[in-house]
Design a protein around this nucleic acid. Structure first.
Length: 105
DNA sequence: AGGTTGACAAAGG
DNA sequence: GCCTTTGCCAACC
């Protein structure tokens, strides 16, 4: 493991993600605005989390309401299943209706 | 130190 | 609505 999860910026991002309850979601852009950084940095912070993390990383999706694809990993499929288990529903195109599920901080 | 690299977003065609 | 730029910035080496 060589990825950083302990910078102050990353910790602020994780703290926010932890505030999202099961059955709700947030977006990279929303988190980015709250900690005054860019969406790409939020994605980078989440990528650094270990598998056994207690941070509900699966509740972070993109601005289109879809699960973002990372390189070679099968995490996207896991993310989908975890969200379904939490009661989040996807439409025919595989998108979540942000109007219904978006977290309001 | 400076170029490379992303789990993005918004705007344009 | 899809695909292509374009802006972004922290971490990494």
């Amino acid at each position: 493991m060589g990825l950083t999860t302990a910078t102050p910026l990353y910790q602020r991002i994780y703290t926010l993600v932890q505030q999202v309850p099961p059955g709700r979601v947030t977006t990279y852009g929303q988190l980015a605005r709250l900690v005054a950084t860019t969406p790409r940095v939020v994605g980078f912070a989440l990528a650094a989390l270990p598998e056994n993390s207690d941070i509900p990383w699966q509740r972070v999706i993109n601005a289109k309401g879809r699960i973002s694809q990372r390189g070679q990993s099968d995490r996207a499929e896991l993310q989908y299943q975890l969200l379904i288990n939490e009661g989040v529903s996807f439409d025919e195109t595989g998108a979540i209706k942000l109007a219904d599920y978006l977290m309001h901080f």
